[in-house]
Design a protein around this nucleic acid. Structure first.
Length: 678
RNA sequence: GGGCCUGUAGCUCAAUGGUUAGAGCAGGGAACUCAUAAUUCCUUGGUCGGGGGUUCGAAUCCCUCCAGGCCUACCA
């Protein structure tokens, strides 16, 4: 296979807020893809930078009473800390506020001028006389001109969904100073994108450049009609780059941001004795941009147009991903699901999230849901239970002897898994990470079966079987290492620990094709620990922020979520209800069931001599001692159920999703054991 | 209102138009005791969203309806 030259970028995070788990979908996705390409031996480089310009940055700096440069330096440091923590490995991470970027912007600009694409037009905009600047839409609030709702944003109304120009707002107010803005004429520069319409038609529809859903979206939406002129300048004061030969005009942040990809490349090239033009003006370079679907517009229309005009190589592919939801909903600060990267890292291992995202990501732009129960189950059963367990259950048998001198007969397992590597590689290449993970886990299942069949722990008891024992463990550990080769792009840290275990680093994807033999093995140390639910809960707790002022409606603001999660059942008749015999019962004894993960054993009294033995799945939520003596509601006529630990003679009634969130029902004071509930 | 995507087991997802639709997790039963209560075997569980159509044959192709998601609007 010939070596490819691949340049990869992720979208530049805005230097105005911390990195959160939503951002990380993209950086983890990109990082996995880049690590995969590097492991395959390609000349692959990953560039990114902070996006540092615009009015929002000015506002933040102003609020803190510090220069913009100080603010963006602080943000960059925080961003890098988060990325490093999640093992996102850039070849270079720059900033759009750099000399390299300023120069490149100048050269792009000149190309646009030369191509006669820039025109000047006069527009009426809102101006804040107190602050002395024109106001971006987001910094104006006022009464909706359509429905009269007060306190609406500058561009649209949440009440009636109307969109409008901020100059149409009734009674507008600047959110920067509370001043009433003035309407002022402003001369602004526009790029006539329409002149490149046919090029964009062609480029966006060419197979391979975009996912089909994105190509369709552009075709049916923007490209169906003449493209609007792109408003590319902003009047000062504006934190950004001044446009050459224009006294008071700055490039709009979305002009200089994507050029930041090239500037970051250039900084790396300058430091490494290379020419950035070899990367960006070279048809042999594959350029891959990873972005979220919210910025499709900028990367699939403006950006190719700019590259084309300035004579740069066009992207080979734009990889567009969806948004992150948590437990099926948009991230929410009040729910504690707006989780910052650094908050996560305070409690949990980054590998968990890397693996979880990989197991959910595919090449389409659908949203990805982070479900707390699912991440626990996936990591604990796949990674710890299956993969790491392979090493854990075999390494210690051959710590003294090391791996066998020649690779033993294994019934073709290694060969088979080696061949599977091609299909796994194809899945990685196509960004079908979930498929790759599925295939890898199937290999782990096979390897566990092999160990079970061979039963090395039995061989260990018989000195005559010493060679067989070494051979079986040699196979098992090689199958394990092979899996780690495939997982290395996703889990670099686990791969490093595995390198240590085997005294031999994994350096290339092809390492999965050759078994290790005649090799000493380090003393086994735990490679990865299980996720504890309480740590996940701690992340959510730490992420919770006080609710913003309630919208309306008084003091009872119950969430609609429980009902959405478990909708009402169909209507039943009274007789149906009466079949269920609910009784008040007193817990007279409660004890742990040591072998059971979720169960407590309860002895319930229905009064008099009537006792019931009930197993309840509430171990995670209640201490046995705290339960003794309290009254609960039980289903008293439920058919007895034989369980592994004994017969359960009914059930106690509780609400909640399960796990730690279980809430037993209690009757009000005065209720007596044995009384029926109706 | 329009566009795009999705709908398969309780949950997460597979299945080039071709046997009886499969995995993992969860549930039930058993085995094992090397391993971080991990693993292995057996097992329960499906109106492939509904209805039409094309076909020798449809989860898969076409039409239509329903539900969900995302995007976007007096425009496609």
């Amino acid at each position: 296979m010939s070596q490819r030259r691949i340049l990869v970028t992720s979208a530049l995070p805005y230097a105005n807020g911390p990195i959160h788990l939503g951002h990380l979908v993209e950086y983890i996705q990109t990082d996995i893809w880049v690590r995969f390409q590097k492991l395959r031996g390609h000349d692959c480089r990953y560039f990114c930078a902070d996006d540092t310009h615009g009015t929002a940055i000015m506002k933040s700096a102003k609020e803190r009473n510090i220069p913009e440069e100080t603010w963006i330096a602080q943000m960059k440091e925080a961003h890098l800390k988060a990325f490093t923590g999640f093992q996102i490995e850039f070849d270079h991470y720059g900033s759009t506020h750099s000399d390299a970027n300023r120069e490149l912007c100048g050269s792009f600009w000149q190309s646009l001028l030369n191509a006669d694409l820039v025109v000047e037009k006069e527009v009426i905009r809102l101006y804040d006389p107190k602050v002395g600047m024109f106001l971006a839409d987001r910094f104006v609030k006022g009464t909706c001109p359509n429905c009269g709702a007060p306190n609406q944003n500058g561009d649209s109304c949440v009440q009636c969904q109307a969109t409008y120009d901020p100059t149409e707002l009734i009674d507008p107010k600047s959110t920067l100073s509370e001043a009433t803005p003035e309407k002022r004429p402003s001369k602004q520069l526009f790029v006539q994108l329409e002149k490149l319409h046919s090029f964009l038609d062609e480029w966006t529809q060419e197979p391979g450049h975009l996912q089909t859903e994105s190509a369709n979206y552009l075709k049916n939406f923007f490209l169906k009609e003449p493209l609007k002129d792109w408003d590319i300048s902003r009047p000062g004061p504006y934190f950004g780059f001044q446009i050459p030969d224009r006294k008071d005009d700055y490039w709009y942040v979305w002009f200089d941001a994507p050029i930041g990809y090239i500037a970051s490349t250039k900084e790396w090239c300058d430091a490494n004795g290379q020419s950035y033009e070899d990367w960006w003006k070279n048809s042999d370079t594959e350029i891959h941009h990873f972005i979220g679907k919210d910025i499709t517009y900028f990367h699939t229309l403006f950006w190719p147009a700019m590259l084309k005009t300035a004579g740069f190589t066009l992207p080979k592919r734009i990889h567009i991903h969806g948004f992150l939801t948590v437990d099926g909903k948009k991230m929410s600060k009040s729910d504690g699901t707006f989780i910052e990267a650094l908050t996560y890292l305070n409690h949990l291992n980054p590998s968990y999230l890397r693996y979880f995202y990989a197991s959910k990501l595919s090449a389409n732009d659908g949203d990805l849901d982070l479900n707390t129960q699912e991440i626990i189950s996936k990591v604990n059963s796949d990674l710890v239970g299956k993969v790491v367990n392979l090493a854990s259950r075999s390494a210690k048998f051959i710590q003294e002897t090391g791996l066998s001198e020649t690779y033993p007969e294994d019934g073709g397992l290694f060969q088979q898994a080696s061949a599977e590597g091609d299909a796994i590689a194809e899945a990685f290449e196509a960004c079908e990470f979930s498929q790759a993970v599925r295939r890898i886990m199937a290999l782990a299942d096979q390897a566990n079966q092999y160990i079970d069949q061979q039963a090395p722990w039995k061989m260990k008891k018989d000195p005559d079987q010493a060679q067989a024992l070494q051979d079986v463990c040699t196979v098992a550990l090689n199958l394990y290492r092979q899996i780690i080769v495939y997982l290395k792009p996703i889990l670099p840290e686990l791969a490093e620990k595995t390198d240590t275990l085997f005294n031999k680093p994994i350096e290339h994807w092809e390492d999965a094709k050759t078994p290790l033999v005649n090799q000493s093995i380090q003393k086994f140390k735990h490679l990865m620990t299980r996720i504890e639910e309480k740590k996940v809960n701690a992340v959510i707790e730490e992420s919770k922020q006080p609710e913003e002022a309630p919208i309306a409606g008084g003091e009872f603001q119950d969430s609609a979520e429980p009902l959405e999660k478990e909708p009402l059942s169909e209507t039943i008749e009274f007789d149906d209800f009466m079949k269920v015999d609910l009784r008040v019962a007193r817990i007279v004894e409660a004890k742990e069931v040591p072998e059971a993960r979720k169960l407590l054993q309860l002895t319930l009294s229905l009064g008099g001599e009537e006792r019931r033995n009930v197993f309840a799945g509430i171990k995670a939520a209640y201490e046995p001692e705290a339960l003794v003596g309290r009254l609960v509601i039980m289903v008293a006529n439920l058919a007895p159920r034989k369980m592994r630990f004994g017969v359960s003679e009914g059930m106690v009634v509780a609400s909640g999703p399960g796990g730690k969130d279980v809430f037993l029902l209690s009757p009000d004071e005065g209720a007596l054991p044995g009384q029926r509930v109706h």
